[in-house]
């Protein structure tokens, strides 16, 4: 027992002068532990999703999508600026609620980014490497879903900010615009968060089930489209164009060739589905409870609940208990997806 291994603090044999070996320095600082590991994985996943530290080809697509999602907001602010002194400025062509629908284009981003952030970890067998760090399976899921959801949130929230600030500056009085649109200040972030979290969790859950990015992306697309076609078909065959309750509609009169100076006109659709009190009629899409099965529209239903307190999106509009149904489907998909993810990355066996 003569050979005593060199102690770590003295730097080993190098300090004894026998062998000089350059290159290794012990780390004297503190290690961040579990929160730092979670944060590092979150950061790395965001970088990967938006293509930072990757080739221009991998940067191109995310930034193109950000542009696509922002262009309408910028164009609309421009239009509002040009027409600011004409009567047309009274018309709101696009509302914040509708703009969240525009953000559904970001689904393409989610469908590509989520598999790209999750599948290679399993395919390259990187998971054992990640889980040899102070990280649990749940931390992994939180970091990955959080990263995708954050990017989607940012990409759909920024154009809304552009829209809001732009409209505020273009309007006659910024203060009036602000006080007239106070509700938007909570509706937009909450609606955007609900939208981002929903699609990110679903896309991540599907990506966790395969090692092939293409299969994950295709599966997500097929699931959403199939459910949408399925819901539309069933609603059209079983639903009635009736709304169960009196239902206000507001419509730009120009749509019907009217005079834009008339301002918005409205009508009321009675419980029998007939227009009761106006001189135009609206062809309502048939609605039924099956409309809630449209997984593509679920975040739009929830958005309607946030912005309007009732659903106006096709196939579920005016359905009895449609709001509760939409929230139910939303919760099932969100928590189901998170459940699948936690199960797929349960690294610590019992």
């Amino acid at each position: 027992m003569t050979a005593v291994p060199p102690s770590r603090t003295t730097g080993g044999a190098a300090s004894a002068g026998a062998v000089y070996d350059r290159g290794y320095r012990p780390y004297d600082g503190t290690l961040g532990g579990r929160p730092a590991a979670r944060r590092a994985l979150y950061k790395a996943s965001i970088r990967r999703a938006v293509g930072l530290r990757r080739s221009w080809r991998q940067k191109f697509f995310p930034w193109l999508l950000l542009a696509v999602a922002s262009v309408p907001a910028i164009v609309w602010v421009g239009v509002a600026y040009i027409t600011r002194n004409t009567p047309a400025s009274a018309i709101e062509i696009i509302t914040y609620r509708e703009y969240l629908g525009v953000s559904t284009a970001l689904l393409v981003f989610v469908g590509l980014a989520a598999p790209d952030v999750l599948c290679p970890d399993r395919r390259n067998r990187t998971l054992p490497l990640l889980f040899s760090r102070p990280l649990t399976g749940t931390d992994y899921v939180v970091a990955k879903v959080g990263a995708i959801a954050s990017v989607v949130f940012l990409f759909s929230f920024l154009p809304q900010v552009v829209l809001y600030v732009g409209q505020m500056l273009v309007s006659d009085s910024a203060r009036t615009y602000l006080s007239d649109n106070l509700d938007v200040l909570w509706q937009v972030p909450v609606g955007t968060a609900a939208f981002s979290l929903y699609f990110s969790s679903l896309a991540c859950a599907i990506s966790s089930l395969t090692t092939r990015r293409l299969i994950a992306a295709a599966s997500l697309l097929i699931l959403l489209l199939a459910s949408s076609v399925f819901a539309a078909g069933l609603s059209e065959s079983t639903g009635a164009p009736a709304r169960s309750d009196g239902f206000e509609v507001e419509i730009d009169p120009e749509t019907f060739g009217g005079d834009p100076n008339d301002g918005p006109v409205g009508g009321r659709i009675g419980s029998d589905g007939q227009v009761t009190s106006t001189d135009f009629y609206v062809v309502a899409e048939p609605s039924s409870a099956w409309g809630a099965a449209n997984l593509l529209a679920v975040p739009l239903h929830v958005r309607d609940l946030i912005f309007l307190g009732e659903i106006r999106e096709p196939y579920l509009a005016g359905v009895d208990g449609g709001g509760a149904l939409a929230l139910g489907v939303y919760s099932v998909v969100l928590f189901g997806s998170l459940g699948v993810l936690v199960w797929r990355y349960r690294w610590l066996e019992s």
């Binding site: 780390y27 600082g29 503190t30 290690l31 961040g32 532990g33 730092a36 590991a37 590092a40 994985l41 950061k43 790395a44 530290r53 990757r54 290679p120 970890d121 390259n124 067998r125 990187t126 054992p128 490497l129 990640l130 040899s132 760090r133 102070p134 990280l135």
Partner: peptide, 25 residues
């Protein structure tokens, strides 16, 4: 680990520094 476990489309510097951050650096 014994088997291949590295993300292949990133540089060694990026991978090692990312895993260093994950270890708490």
């Amino acid at each position: 680990p014994e088997h291949d476990c590295l993300p292949t489309d990133q540089s060694a510097a990026d991978v090692v520094s990312m895993l260093g951050e994950l270890a708490g650096l």
